[in-house]
Simulated assay, not measured.
Amino acid sequence: MSTTGSSPELRMVPVDAVDVLNPRERNDKVFDEIVINIKRIGLKKPITVTPRSQANGTERFLLVCGEGRLKAYRTLGQTEIPALIVHVSDEEAFIMSLAENIARRQCRPLELLLGIEQLRDKGYKAKDIAAKTGLTFTYVQGILMLLERGEQRLIVAVERGEIPLNAAIAIVGAGDDDKAIQSALQEAYEAGTLRGKNLLEARRVIERRKTLGRSIQHASPRKREPVTTTSLVRAYQKEVESQKLMVKKAEFTQQKLLFIATALKQLFTDEHFATLLRAEGLDSLPRQLVERIWPGGHAA
């Protein structure tokens, strides 16, 4: 991309005259911190804009960098904001804005995905995207490959550090072969890039990918069955069966407890057994069990 040879001009521009070209969703807590810092110490870094003349002769600006700072100024009721003026085309401003957001690495995983995807759709190759964003060529190339396969769920897992990029690529290469997928996880484990908690997270992501699909944004929601008299009867029957099963389990548990209590009561009548338990420090029992063995509350 090309810009004019002159250095950017720093001047005050009307806050209401700046249009956001590439808006982003922001974390409320982070935004509140930006507002507090600006209110306390002022603006440490000016925003970057490019001028656009209107048909009525007025001048407006496209925001290139600094959306959070601009919104903070608006929140604080400021009418003007310090800005660096650069002279670039609409597309150049859009690319600069995307590259700035990605390079800062403060965006959420899906925003990072969207930024790289938009740069790719603008015709930029992996090498160009890496140079403009500060990301490594290997990382961008791997993400673009996952994008082409529609693997949003794996991309988000990679960006969150749940799965290493090379393991994610191996998982895609394995297709739907569970053994091949497990082999990819095993290789990542042996290489030391996937251990402990991350290994469990990786298995969870793979299971969700299998059941919910590869895409996050376009994952089809489960259809709800309409409520009818038949569905209500079926739900009632299912609940009755569940209650019956619970009662059976409770009765079985009670029978086992009765057997244990009877057996212990007989064993405790054997003085040798009682002496052995005392010698090993095992002569005490839970109060609830004592009450069942000796309803009177004392040992025989």
Results as ranks from 00 to 15, higher is better:
Asn56Val: 14
Lys244Trp: 03
Arg209Asn: 07
Arg203Tyr: 09
Lys197Arg: 14
Leu119Cys: 00
Ala83Thr: 09
Leu84Met: 14
Leu43Pro: 00
Val205Met: 12
Gly77Glu: 03
Ile260Val: 13
Gln141Pro: 01
His272Leu: 12
Arg11Tyr: 10
Gln255Asp: 09
Thr262Tyr: 11
Arg153Glu: 00
Leu199Gly: 00
Lys44Ala: 07
Pro82Gln: 06
Gly77Leu: 06
Gly123Thr: 01
His298Arg: 13
Arg234Leu: 10
Leu285Phe: 10
Leu232Thr: 13
Gln266Pro: 11
Gly296Gln: 10
Ile143Asn: 00
Tyr139Glu: 00
Arg208Ala: 14
Arg287Tyr: 13
Asp178Glu: 13
Ala170Leu: 09
Glu201Arg: 15
Thr75Glu: 08
Asp128Ser: 12
Arg214Trp: 06
Tyr189Val: 07
Arg234Pro: 02
Thr211Arg: 15
Ser53Phe: 15
Pro8Gly: 04
Ala250Thr: 06
Ile85Asp: 00
Asn101Phe: 03
Glu148Ser: 11
Ser284Lys: 15
Ala299His: 12
Leu264Lys: 08
Ala202Trp: 07
Thr275Phe: 06
Tyr73Met: 10
Glu91Pro: 01
Arg224Asp: 02
Leu10Met: 05
Gly281Glu: 01
Asn22Glu: 05
Asn56Ile: 14
Phe137Asn: 03
Ser231Thr: 15
Phe31Leu: 06
His298Ile: 13
Pro164Glu: 04
Arg105Trp: 08
Leu147Arg: 02
Ser97Tyr: 12
Gly297Asn: 05
Gln78Phe: 13
Ile85Gln: 01
Leu10His: 05
Pro226Val: 12
Phe259Gly: 05
Arg105Tyr: 08
Ile102Met: 03
Lys179Asn: 11
Ala130Asn: 01
Arg292Ser: 02
Lys249Arg: 11
Lys39Phe: 13
Gln54Ala: 08
His298Gly: 07
Arg24Ile: 03
Ala300Met: 12
Ile34Gly: 06
Arg214Phe: 07
Ala126Ile: 05
Glu148Trp: 11
Gln106Ser: 09
Ala261Trp: 06
Thr138Tyr: 11
Ala263Ser: 10
Thr253Lys: 11
Val35Lys: 05
Ala131Pro: 04
Ile163Arg: 08
Lys210Gly: 05
Phe273Pro: 02
Pro295Lys: 12
Phe61Ile: 05
Asp128Pro: 03
Lys249Thr: 07
Ala250Trp: 01
Ile95Cys: 04
Glu201Asp: 11
Phe273Val: 01
Gln243Ala: 07
Gly42Asp: 00
Ile171His: 00
Ala157Gln: 02
Arg278Asp: 11
Gly161Phe: 04
Gln254Lys: 15
Ser97Ala: 15
Glu207Val: 14
Gly115Val: 00
Ala219Glu: 09
Ala219Gln: 15
Asp176Ser: 13
Ala55Asn: 04
Leu10Gly: 04
Ile293Cys: 07
Leu277Glu: 06
Lys179Glu: 14
Tyr124Gly: 01
Gly57Val: 01
Ser7Asp: 05
Gly57Glu: 02
Ala170Asp: 11
Leu264Gly: 02
Val172Trp: 01
Lys244Ile: 12
Gly115Trp: 03
Gly196Lys: 14
Gln152Cys: 06
Pro109Thr: 02
Ala103His: 10
Gln266Glu: 13
Ala17Trp: 03
Val18Ser: 00
Leu200Asp: 12
Arg74Tyr: 07
Lys244Phe: 05
Thr230Lys: 14
Leu185Asn: 05
Leu70Thr: 02
